[in-house]
Design a protein around this nucleic acid. Sequence first.
DNA 1: TTGTACGCGTTATCAC
DNA 2: GTGATAACGCGTACAA
Lengths: 344, 344
Amino acid sequence: MVTIKDIARAAGVSPATVSRALNDSPLLREETKTRIRHLAAELGYEKNELARGLVKGASGAIGLIIPDITNPFFADIARGAEEVARVRGYGVLLCTTEGDPELERSHLHLLRRKRVDGLLLTSVTAEDPYLEDLVRANVPFVLVSRLVRRLDAPFVVGDDRHGARLAVEHLISIGHRRIGFIGGPKDVQSSQDRMEAYQVALAEQGLPPRRGWAVFASFTQDAGREWGRALLSRKDRPTALFAANDLIALGVMEAAEEVGLRIPEDLSLVGYDNISYAALPRIQLTTVAQPTVEMGRIAAEYLLDVIDGSRRRKLRKVLRPHLVVRRTTAPPPSRADTRDLTTG
Amino acid sequence: MVTIKDIARAAGVSPATVSRALNDSPLLREETKTRIRHLAAELGYEKNELARGLVKGASGAIGLIIPDITNPFFADIARGAEEVARVRGYGVLLCTTEGDPELERSHLHLLRRKRVDGLLLTSVTAEDPYLEDLVRANVPFVLVSRLVRRLDAPFVVGDDRHGARLAVEHLISIGHRRIGFIGGPKDVQSSQDRMEAYQVALAEQGLPPRRGWAVFASFTQDAGREWGRALLSRKDRPTALFAANDLIALGVMEAAEEVGLRIPEDLSLVGYDNISYAALPRIQLTTVAQPTVEMGRIAAEYLLDVIDGSRRRKLRKVLRPHLVVRRTTAPPPSRADTRDLTTG
DNA sequence: TTGTACGCGTTATCAC
DNA sequence: GTGATAACGCGTACAA
């Protein structure tokens, strides 16, 4: 590999001058700058960011921690983040945790050893124990899509209460009165918020909560299938289900098919997130859309601002979701139909 | 940040000794090694990989270049790659090109500046001009899922001819005689192979190629929809379509719905790759399964072996795909049905 | 078995 | 304007 010393020798100047030329120092005269740059290009010089990082105390890379890149929700975030990192000349180190705190911990160490300049965190559950270490170590980071109440950390999230309300009100507006909810994990903030907003929205319309129609579960298709089966097998089953994310909704689709319920004729279904799955032909899931890619972008943009020292005010971004009505919601079956089905 | 000097001072030894202890040098006595290590842990020491990389000429990271992390096919590869990189202590720098050669080029430069130890390349079309630069620069790399004939580079691919044959033979075995094909880009090797194998498989069964039933397009849902519409609107439309990947197949699903054809009653459909979309409820696409995650794993494993200097023979892995029969294939409609539909 | 001294490629601080 | 020189944190010949 060619170094600035090689260029210096070839140009008949000192390494310092080469460095200045390459960094566009105002101290040099234009003429020498361009001359040296041409020479560098000719020799195929590539700056060594390891060396640069060593002296400047910055690596020019950020870490992105997610549970699973295969989950389209996180892939969207990754995409937004990578996009802005790229245009700002930063690298992004991909770290997947599989939801395992131990893996998260080891990734965090790897990233510190690599001296990443900042972190984008998504897989953070409420009790995540490593966050205080990060603030102690003074590593800039942003929480993406998951909020941690006990900490005063910068974040980008969606307005979960508003989103859940949109879902429930949509169902009510087309005539549903018997609306169930399958939630995410109990210890995740967004999960709690969606549950609460669901209950509030029902209450506002004078619809009493029905015992067993709303459950905490987990953000997976499996959970959706299992709980969907349970809820839909009840004698007094709901005519509509609001799923706390799209994966759960897909599980409910499976359950509905197993139980012999048609969507949307017999059962209306609303998801959350509007991941790529939701728009697929035949799925066509009505869902609450979060600007997921945008969340990744905003988080990365802020993080890099902080790193570059240009930003001061702490990021507290709450993005408004909106409802995307597709083909999994329709008015509930008439009473006759309902009787038919509940006895069947 | 605490350095080995700090530890040396605290331990009353020289920095060199600390370095040796941390790298488990056989020169040191166990006792001092463990003592120093404990001390390092206490002080919260984290090795500076920038400095280490500078002296060793290796960064401890590899680059992963893909067109789009949002595409489940590439997300699968990324997952496999990240998984093995993680256990072997390497970082992976995520680079997405959006299929733009210019972006690919700039990423390649960034990665060289970061002195990555190796590269995983997926978005490489046949004319990719940067590959020779890489071999010239002596950067280890592996081609994943895309083959470049003119170059003698290590690769992991699926056996596309075999896969395509599986698809076509399945369709023939359940009674289809009128089988169309919508391919990927003409300049991609796997695309060409699938097309050829499709034609060979037909010919072997004595089924003559029909003019206009087989087309090169691109690996996107849009392409599937457009070409699907075109092929399915013909008077002499096929009773089955083989799509060169699952995204195309999804587009065909849309087209079929537009045209009023039911799948699989009126039209059988086979995809390729078995991405996560294919297994979704209501999609349930019959498809040729590639071990995509495994491809990422194998590629990374080999790359890191090369980097560590433990591997010599060039990787030329061709993985066997298998057919996953789901619900988009069925025997063709009877002749009466066919007449009905073509006049409708 | 351990310490000394140097170099990895760059930037920054002095001089000139 | 430009050139020495000294860091940055670590690994490693060489010496002890």
